[in-house]
Every structure is written in structure tokens, then in C-alpha cells.
């Protein structure tokens, strides 16, 4: 009996020790990087501006997405996970876990208000947390809130399974407005210069969406429908160019701020994400497990990642 107790005790110590000791390769605070968040084998690959691998963090937990937040932190969430985990990049350590319950679909950080928003598809809510991980507010929205972007004290949330885009006041976490959009909309970009909101989507039923809708940021009126290829869902903006990935047709489109197509390029296999890192455009191919570095509209380099690169995170310091 005593032996058993001792054994269980040692096991407990070992497990606790193991948990506390989860530590990944450190990322220098002054290191710029682009990171691919891979979800088939939950992991994050960090690359420098030359496309050299800095580190790979492999997780036991089934993370499905991530976001960078200031002062050297990485937020990781999973749709099946109960909590959102925050790692410190320079130490590679888990520094905080925020209980959210399962169903997290996305997180978004608002730099100005220093708030982290967590969208949940089970409770159909968006909750806000302060820097200390304390919940500040919560609002129930429509079916399956997911894509988010914020500007000027307002949070724009796409309800994936409802034809509604919700506009939420960040401070009071109250609903400001609801705009009609297509069902299965996904991907959101606020273009301050034109005071517009670009919304992408997969399309509903068997019909793939081929358009990016440009809404008036003030009233949600559709100003323009930009013809893309198939299922434009990934957005990124640098200067006056907006990049859009079409994951259905494996194409990257470059538009000017008025929605005029500058060029298009077939890149990656089933690319969901696009990002701009320094002077390069980065595209992640979900099916071929590669990220592509493009310079001036041409593929400069392909780099293998862990399985299923789904998101791209960029830090430039």
C-alpha cells in the first residue's frame, strides 16, 4: 500500500513538473519573423526575413489558431480547448491560460484599447479581456462569430453561419449595428484610407463565392463587389496594396485600395492565409504544407512547414 502511495506521489510530481516545464525554443525579442500556424500537426514555425527557420514549436494541444499581442506574446486557441493559452516568445514559456470554454473560433487584439477579443461559436459570444487576462465584457451575437477586425473603438465581427456582420462598441461591449452580408463570409479587412470594410467568404452550399464585398465602414452599405477568383478569404494590406488569397483556385490577387486588380498569381495549394513581411508577400499553402515568399509578384522561395499551415503571423521590429 505504501509503495503505491509513493508511486502515485512520484507520478503526480512528475506530471506537475512536466506541465510546468513546458518550454519552447526562445525567440529573440528583436527578431522579426513570419510564423505559420499549422493545425493538422498543431505547431508554429518561425522564419526570418530570408526565409530561414528560427524555431518550430510543436504542441500537444489541438490549437487551431493564434495571434500576436504586444510585448512579446503569442496567444494560442483551439476550437476544442477550454482555454486560451498565452506564451512568452522570448522565454518560450506558457505564462497564462484564460478559461474560455470550448468553441473558440478566433481572437483579435485591439492595440489602441489594449483588449483581447475572443469569439466563441458555442455560446455565440465575443468576450473581451484586458492585459491581465481579466474579462471585461461579453456580448452575445449571431450564429458562429468568427472573423474580427477593429477600428476606432468599434469591433467588426462576421457571424459565419448567419448573414450578419455585427458592429460592437469596444468599451461598452454593446451592439452598435448589424449589417447584411453573405452567409459563410470569412476574412475581414478594414481599409482606413477609403473608410471601407472588405469582406471575403467561401460561398454557401455548393457555390463558391467569387467576390470580395466592400462595405461602407459607417453604414455597412455595399459600395463595391470586387471580382476575385474562388473563395477569397485571406486578406493582408501593405501601403496601398491589398492582397487577397483565393483558396479555392489557389490564387493570390493584388488590388489597389479602390479594388482594381493589379496582378494575380497562382500560388500554393489551398492557401488560406496571406501576410506581408518586410517587402515580401507570404502565402501559406494548407494542402502542400509550404509557405511561399513572393517578391514583386513572383515566387522567390518555397519553405516547408509542419502539416497544415493555416494562419500567418508577422512581427516586424
Amino acid at each position: 500500500m505504501k509503495k503505491w502511495v509513493a508511486f502515485l506521489f512520484l507520478c503526480t510530481i512528475w506530471i506537475l513538473h512536466g506541465c510546468n516545464d513546458e518550454e519552447f525554443q526562445q525567440i529573440n525579442q528583436h527578431q522579426s519573423f513570419v510564423a505559420s500556424v499549422n493545425i493538422l500537426e498543431p505547431s508554429v514555425d518561425f522564419f526570418d526575413s530570408d526565409g530561414e527557420r528560427i524555431a518550430t514549436w510543436k504542441f500537444e494541444k489541438a490549437y487551431t489558431g493564434a495571434a500576436l499581442i504586444p510585448y512579446d506574446r503569442l496567444v494560442l486557441y483551439g476550437h476544442q480547448l477550454d482555454e486560451v493559452d498565452i506564451y512568452e516568445l522570448s522565454t518560450g514559456k506558457l505564462i497564462q491560460s484564460i478559461e474560455t470554454g470550448t468553441g473558440t473560433t478566433n481572437v483579435h487584439y485591439d492595440k489602441k484599447e489594449k483588449l483581447l477579443f475572443v469569439a466563441n461559436s458555442e455560446s455565440n459570444t465575443v468576450a473581451s479581456f484586458n492585459e491581465q487576462g481579466e474579462k471585461q465584457g461579453e456580448i452575445r451575437l449571431k450564429d458562429y462569430p468568427m472573423s474580427m477586425d477593429s477600428h476606432d473603438g468599434k469591433l467588426y465581427v462576421v457571424n459565419y453561419k448567419a448573414p450578419v456582420l455585427s458592429v460592437v462598441d469596444i468599451k461598452s461591449m454593446s451592439l452598435v449595428d448589424e449589417w447584411n452580408i453573405d452567409k459563410s463570409s470569412s476574412g475581414l479587412l478594414i481599409v482606413k484610407e477609403t473608410n471601407t470594410l472588405w469582406v471575403g467568404g467561401h460561398g454557401s452550399g455548393s457555390r463558391p463565392n467569387q467576390k470580395v464585398k466592400v462595405l461602407d465602414l459607417d453604414n455597412g452599405q455595399v459600395i463595391q463587389e470586387i471580382q476575385a477568383s474562388q473563395m477569397p478569404v485571406g486578406f493582408s494590406k501593405k501601403g496601398d496594396i491589398i492582397y487577397v488569397t483565393n483558396h479555392g483556385s489557389n490564387e493570390l490577387f493584388a488590388f489597389d485600395l479602390n479594388g482594381k486588380m493589379l496582378w494575380r498569381k497562382e500560388v500554393g495549394a489551398n492557401p488560406f492565409a496571406v501576410a506581408v513581411f518586410k517587402d515580401n508577400v507570404i502565402v501559406a499553402g494548407f494542402d502542400d504544407n509550404q509557405i511561399y515568399i513572393l517578391e514583386n509578384g513572383e515566387i522567390k522561395r518555397k519553405i516547408s512547414t509542419q502539416s497544415g499551415p493555416f494562419q500567418l503571423l508577422v512581427r516586424e521590429v
Binding site: I39, K161, H202, G205, S206, P208, M231, V233, N270
Partner: peptide, 16 residues
């Protein structure tokens, strides 16, 4: 060739 039919969207939930 319709990517919708080919489960291309799969990390996202499909209502179809």
C-alpha cells in the same frame, strides 16, 4: 473541380 465539393474549406466548418 468545385473546391466547395472537394472539402477545400475544411478547417472552417461547412454547412453542406
Amino acid at each position: 473541380r468545385n473546391p466547395r465539393e472537394l472539402s477545400a474549406c475544411v478547417p472552417f466548418e461547412i454547412d453542406y
